[in-house]
Design a protein around this nucleic acid. Structure first.
Lengths: 236, 236, 236, 236
DNA sequence: CATGAATGAGAGTTCATTCAT
DNA sequence: GATGAATGAACTCTCATTCAT
C-alpha cells in the first residue's frame, strides 16, 4: 500500500527527470546516467523501475496522455457544434503543449518518428484521441454544418498537421513565443478556407452560382472543388 | 577532370547508400559499416569523402533538395493564379516524396527533428523553398484571389503541416499507398474550407450576408471569422 | 569510507599497471587494453577511474612524486652544509629512480618530452622540488661555501642534467647496473670541478696566485673563470 | 647520375619537411600526410623514398649528424688544451642546436627516448662523437691538466647531461632565448667546480692543504673528494 | 616518377545493463 | 529498495601503407 504508493511516486519522479533529459537531447545522445542524476538517483535504481532505456522513453507519455485525453473529453462534453468542438480541440492541444514544452519535445521530436512507439500502449491512447477528432468531423458532416463531400480523415490530418508543424517550429526555433494565438485562425482556415468570397458573392447572383469563372481576366484562379467532381476522394 | 568526376560519382554512390540505410534505422542505430557495405566500399573510404557520420547525414539532402527546388520553380513559371500555384506546389511535394521514399524517410523522420540540421546549408535551400510558398500566398492576397485578412505564414504552415503529416503517416504506417490523391482535396480545403455554403448561401440573400446566424437551431455552429474581427491576426 | 578506500585502491592498482605498461612501450604503442589486462580489469573499468588515456599517463607521477618530495625534505632537514645537501639530493634522486625503474622510465622517457605534461599538477610538484635544489645552492653561496659568482640555475641544470642523462642511459642501455655509485663522484665534480689543483697550488705561491699561466708550455689550457671576468653570467 | 642527384634532392626535401613536422608533434601524432603536404608531395611519394614512417624518422639525423661531427673535428684540430677543447665542444653543440631548433627537437624530444633509435646507423655516428669527447677528457688527464682520478665517462655524462637539459628546457619552455651564453659557465663549472677556494686558500697554507676543515663553525661543508678516497670510481 | 584512391587493422571511448552487497 | 562497481559490446574515426594507372 504505502510501498505501492511510494513506488509510484519514484516512477513519476524518474519519468519527470527522463522527460526533461529526453527533451533536450536525442534519445541516443541522452544517457541513463543523466536521467539518474536529474532524478537524484543512481543508474541502477532507474533499472529497478524500468527494464530498459527504451521502455523508460515509451513510459513518459502514458500518464500524461491519458490525463490530457480525459480533460479534453470533459471540455468537449459541454460544447455544441462541430466547428466549436474543432476549435476547442485545436485550442486545447496547443494549450497543452505550450504548458508542457518538455513533454511536447519528447512527443514531437523523439517519439513521433519512432517506429516502435506506434506499437506502444501510450500510442493507442493517442490514437483514441485521434479517433475522437474524426467523430467530431463526421458529426459536423451529418449535421450539415460541414460539406457532405468532406473527407474527415483529411480534415483530421490537416488539423494534426498544422498543430504538429507549429509546435515543432516553436520547439526548434522558439517562435512564436505564444502558439495559442493560432487556435482561432487555424480553425477559421479549416472551416472557411482562404478564398475571397465577399468579392465573388455579388457575382454569384448574376452568373448562376458559378462564382470564380469571371475573375479569370486577372489570373487563372484555382479550379475549385465544385468543378472537379471527378477528384479522387476517400469515402467515409 | 576525370578524377573530379569520379570523386563526385563516389560521393553520390555513398550518399545513395547512406540514404537507404538512414531511411531504415535511426541515425544512431545505423552504422557507417552498414553504409559502407551497402555502397560496396570499406568504412575508411566513407571517411575519405565525408569527414563525419553526421556530415554524411546532412549531405544527403543537399543535391536532391536543390534539384527538387529548381524543378518546382520550373513548373511554377507556367502556372497562373495563386490557387493553381498552391495546387502545383502541394502536388509536386507529394509527388516528389512518393517517388523517393528513402529520401522522404531521411528528411521527415531523421532530419526534421534534428536541431543541428537547421544550421545546415541544405536546410537553407529548403527554407528558400518555404519562402517561395509564402510569396505565392501573398500574391494571391494582393490579387484579391485570397481573403485580405489571410495570414500567409499560417497558410504556409497549414500546407507544410498536412504534407508532412501525410508523408510521415505514409512512411510509418504504409497508408495510403498513394499520397498523391491528396493533392486536390488538400488544395480544396485550404482554399475553400469545409464549411457548407450551398445550404447557407440562400439564407444569405435574405439576411444581409450574415449567413450562419439562423442555423443555430440545430447546433451552435463555430463562430466564424466574419464575427470575430477582434481575433489576433498577424499582418503581412 | 570503505568505498572511498576501495576506489583509491583500484586507482592505485590501475596506476601500477599503467606504469608497468607505459614503461615498456611508447605512449602511443601502449594500449588501454594492455593496461587493463595487466591490472586484471576490463578496458571500461579503466575509464571509470581515468577519463582519458592521457589523464591516466599524467596521473602516474602524482602520488609517487609527492611522496618522493616529502621524503627528500625529511632527509634534508638533518643535513648541514650546502655541499652535503646537494650530495643528499643527488643520492636520493638516484636511489629513488634505481628502486623504481618503471616509474623512472615513464618520467624520463615518456613524460619528460611531453609538452602537455608541463601544465600538469604533477609537474608543478616536481618544479617545487627543483626550486628546493635552487635554495640549497643559494644557501651555499650565501654561506660562502660556494663561489659568490656561482649561477645557481646553471648548477641546478648541471645536477639535473647528469642525473637525467645517467638514468636514461641506465634505462635504455642497462648500464651501469648500479647508478647509485655516481652520487659521490657527481657531487665531487659539481663542487670541485676536474681541474688538477695539487699540481697548480704549489705554483701559486711563487707566482702570485695566478696558477695556470705557467703550464702553458705543455698545452694551452682552458682559460678559466678567474681570467674571464667578462663572461655573461646570470645574477641571482 | 642526374636522376641519382635528383633523387637525393627529393630525399633531402622530404627529410626537411619531416624534420619540421616531427619537431612540432610527437611521432605518433605527426602523420605522413602532414609531412607530404609540407614537402609539397603526395603521401605515396614519401613511400617511394622511405619504406616506413619510422625509417623516415631515423633518416633525419643521418646527414645532419655526419656533417656536424665533421665540422666539430675540424674545429678541434686547431685547439690546444683539453679544457679549451671541452669548451669548444660545448660551445659548438649549443651553437648547432640553437641554429637548428627543429633538428634539436627531433633529436632531443623524439629520438633520445626511442629504444629502436639506439640500433640505428645515425646513432652510431652520434656515438662516435661521444667517444671523441671521451678522448679529449682522457687527453686532459694524461697531460695532467685534469685530476688523475677523474672519471672520463662521468665527465662526459656531465657535459652531455647539461647540454641536453638546457636544450630541452629551451625547446619546451622557450627560455633562455640564447643558450650559447651557457657555453662558458658550463665549461667553468666542469673544470673548476663551484667550491669557493679564494676563501680557503689562505687557510690551506697553515693546515697542510686540508682546506675546508675549519669553516665548520658556520656549517658542515660537503666532505670532498680528498677525504673520500674510498668512493667507488670507475677506471678507464 | 608520381599519385589518387582505397583499405586493413586497430584504438580509444561510451553506455546500457547487471549484480553482489 | 538502492547502489557502487564492473563490463560486454559496439562504433566512430584515424592512418600507415599499397597499388594500378
Amino acid at each position: 500500500m504505502t510501498s505501492r504508493k511510494k513506488s509510484e511516486a519514484r516512477k513519476e519522479q524518474i519519468l519527470k527527470a527522463a522527460e526533461k533529459i529526453f527533451a533536450k537531447k536525442e534519445f541516443h545522445e541522452a544517457t541513463i546516467s543523466e536521467v539518474a542524476r536529474e532524478a537524484g538517483l543512481s543508474d541502477a535504481t532507474i533499472y529497478e523501475y524500468f527494464s530498459t532505456k527504451e521502455e523508460l522513453l515509451f513510459s513518459i507519455p502514458r500518464e500524461t496522455t491519458r490525463r490530457g485525453m480525459e480533460r479534453m473529453k470533459g471540455y468537449l462534453k459541454f460544447i455544441r457544434g462541430a466547428g466549436n468542438k474543432i476549435h476547442t480541440i485545436i485550442y486545447h492541444y496547443l494549450l497543452f503543449y505550450q504548458n508542457a514544452p518538455d513533454y511536447a519535445s519528447v512527443v514531437m521530436l523523439v517519439l513521433k518518428s519512432n517506429r516502435k512507439f506506434l506499437e506502444t500502449e501510450a500510442y493507442q491512447i493517442i490514437r483514441e484521441g485521434f479517433r475522437g477528432i474524426l467523430s467530431v468531423i463526421e458529426e459536423g458532416i451529418d449535421s450539415g454544418e460541414f460539406r457532405p463531400d468532406t473527407d474527415p480523415y483529411l480534415v483530421r490530418q490537416m488539423i494534426l498537421g498544422v498543430i504538429e508543424h507549429i509546435v515543432i517550429r516553436w520547439l526548434l526555433l522558439g517562435k512564436p513565443k505564444d502558439i495559442l494565438q493560432y487556435a482561432d485562425p487555424i480553425t477559421d482556415m479549416i472551416i472557411d478556407g482562404i478564398q475571397n468570397r465577399n468579392q465573388t458573392q455579388g457575382w454569384n447572383l448574376h452568373i448562376k452560382l458559378e462564382p470564380q469563372e469571371d475573375i479569370r481576366g486577372k489570373a487563372t484562379p484555382y479550379t475549385s472543388r465544385a468543378r472537379r467532381k471527378h477528384a479522387p476522394r476517400k469515402k467515409k
